[in-house]
Design a protein around this nucleic acid. Structure first.
Ligand SMILES: [Mg+2]
Length: 514
DNA sequence: ATCACTTGCAA
DNA sequence: TATTGCAAGTGAT
């Protein structure tokens, strides 16, 4: 009753975790009006630890033990005695009580109370529900993929040893480097801190120099899939047959979420072999999966924030943005697929604050041409240029960059005496408002969708968030309703100078949704 | 055990 | 010398 009573207000540290743990034991937690973890994160997302003591230390408060003291480290880890834990709990409660007022005051001073109270706090309930629900997994298929991949990898290793004329650990970049560049004397030897570089860019250049290269590349692909996505996911399935990822809500410096144990925000999709993994993610009986993703949300956010006329017009006319960009920077009307690809890279680069050199490396052109593209881009999209210069200037002056919803990222590196750090600081400053505002927007959409689904007492569930995409488990009786509801809310949850566009796709597994 | 490093997966 | 992440395997400590 105390826990579930909305009218009894609670002040806590990490409401999301509390809700998930309590739910597991059959208790509901409602009425949270202050979460110190979230408040501290909003006040400064660089302070990113989840240890209570470490967080409050940033507010000059030290009368609480470190987690390590309460639980011990490593093998010595143990559940503390009741007395020890009680003291810890009471100290935490006291700290929350004492810090609450000044933290809320600071949030209000910064115009961040709305972000705290109306976005992050309600979002913690949405995320708790997503974590508790979990996503269903086809264990049989996962085991089958395990067997098939193991066989392929074993064969590849034998072939690679034979081609090398020596047995070695193919997974060791050190040993592989020595085989390729010392024993086989292949070109493009490039040093890293610890030895030769053997990453995919290097291997690609070596493709036609020796038949071992192709095999090594296939080995890399398959062993990545095997270790991280087949064995890794198998080990993450709980006794309910589901995977329950944990979202870190108070961690990234831009305001994005991240996903751990396992990370469900980096499931393969770009290449066919890896994409197969997606077939193991299936809905519960009587449901389908619905994936809804924002189209070009970061460029749309940029168009809005920079008030860039040409870009705004293009989005309002629902033009293909990369083709439009190509027309502008190449000064012509007919755009080849290569030119579109290059323009797409430029658009990406703009969001990341990329240099001409970086762009040239990315799309294999010479730095001079890359420089021309970028110059032309800023000429044709002058609003972007003005905006980026303003962001860097403001950030240097204020110490932080900010999003549409006043989320801050402090960037002290901008005043560093070291050139590289200053340059990195500029890129961080240019990227933070874009990536961060996109994160704000999808968070708002999640809250509104979750509220609406509860109001309508729907059986469907929000399962996953992948930065610009939401995945739902949709009851077969609610398909039409959910398709409409999700697009409607995602596209209209905020109003920018450009429309937001959402693509939806329904399927029997995560492979089919797209 | 823990850590730094390299590599590769996603938006 | 492109942003934000997580995690596996190796090899050193
Ligand atoms: Mg998208």
């Amino acid at each position: 009753m105390y826990l579930s009573d909305e009218a009894i207000k609670k002040n806590v540290f990490n409401a999301k975790m509390m809700k998930v743990v309590l739910k597991r034991d059959g208790y509901e937690l409602n009425g949270v009006e202050f979460d110190l973890l979230l408040a501290a994160y909003i006040l400064n997302p660089n302070n990113t630890k989840e240890d209570f003591r470490v967080v409050v230390s940033n507010f000059e408060y030290d009368d609480v033990s470190y987690l390590e003291e309460v639980y011990q480290k490593g093998v010595k880890y143990s559940v503390p005695s009741i007395d020890k834990y009680s003291l810890y709990a009471v100290k935490k409660a006291k700290a929350i009580k004492e810090l609450k007022k000044e933290m809320i005051k600071e949030l209000k001073t910064n115009n961040q109370y709305d972000l705290f109270y109306n976005i992050e706090l309600p979002l913690s309930s949405v995320l708790a529900s997503m974590e508790s629900t979990g996503i269903n997994v086809d264990m049989g298929l996962l085991h089958k993929l395990n067997y098939e991949n193991k066989e392929k990898i074993d064969k590849l290793v034998l072939e690679i040893h034979s081609l090398a004329g020596v047995e070695f650990n193919v997974s060791s970049p050190k040993q592989l480097g020595e085989v390729l560049f010392d024993k086989l004397n292949l070109p493009y030897a490039k040093k890293t801190k610890t030895g030769y570089s053997t990453n995919v860019d290097i291997l690609n250049k070596l493709r036609h120099h020796h038949p071992i290269i192709e095999k090594v590349m296939t080995y890399r692909t398959l062993s990545k899939l095997y270790s991280t996505y087949i064995v890794g996911l198998e080990n993450s399935v709980l006794s309910d047959g589901k995977i329950h990822t944990i979202y870190r809500q108070a961690f990234t410096s831009t305001g994005r979420l991240s996903s751990v144990e396992p990370n469900l925000q980096n499931i393969p999709i770009r290449y066919a072999e890896g994409r197969e993994i997606r077939k193991v993610f299936i809905p519960q009986k009587g449901n389908l999966l619905l994936a809804s993703d924002y189209s070009q949300i970061e460029l749309r956010v940029l168009a809005d924030m920079a008030n860039e006329e040409t870009l705004i017009k293009a989005f309002n006319n629902n033009e293909d943005i990369h083709t439009m960009t190509a027309k502008q920077i190449f000064d012509k009307d007919e755009i080849s697929s290569l030119e579109r690809r290059q323009a797409k890279a430029v658009n990406f680069g703009i969001i990341y604050g990329q240099s001409a050199w970086g762009l040239s490396e990315e799309i294999n052109i010479n730095p001079k041409d890359a420089e021309k593209f970028i110059t032309k881009y800023y000429e044709r999209f002058n609003g972007i240029k003005v905006f980026m210069d303003k962001v860097v200037g403001d950030t240097k002056r204020l110490g932080y960059a900010e999003t549409i919803y006043n989320r801050r990222r402090y960037i002290p590196e901008l005043n560093s005496s070291i050139y590289m750090q200053r340059e990195a600081g500029k890129r961080n400053a240019m990227n933070a408002p874009i990536q961060g505002s996109a994160a704000d927007i999808i968070k708002i959409a999640m809250i509104k969708i979750y509220d609406e689904m509860n109001k309508l007492k729907l059986k469907s569930k929000l399962l996953l968030q992948i930065h610009d995409e939401l995945v739902f488990e949709v009851d077969k009786d609610e398909i039409d309703l959910m398709e409409k509801l999700v697009v409607e809310v995602m596209e209209n949850c905020i109003s920018l100078k450009v429309p937001l566009k959402v693509d939806e796709s329904m399927g029997k597994n995560l492979f089919e949704t797209k």
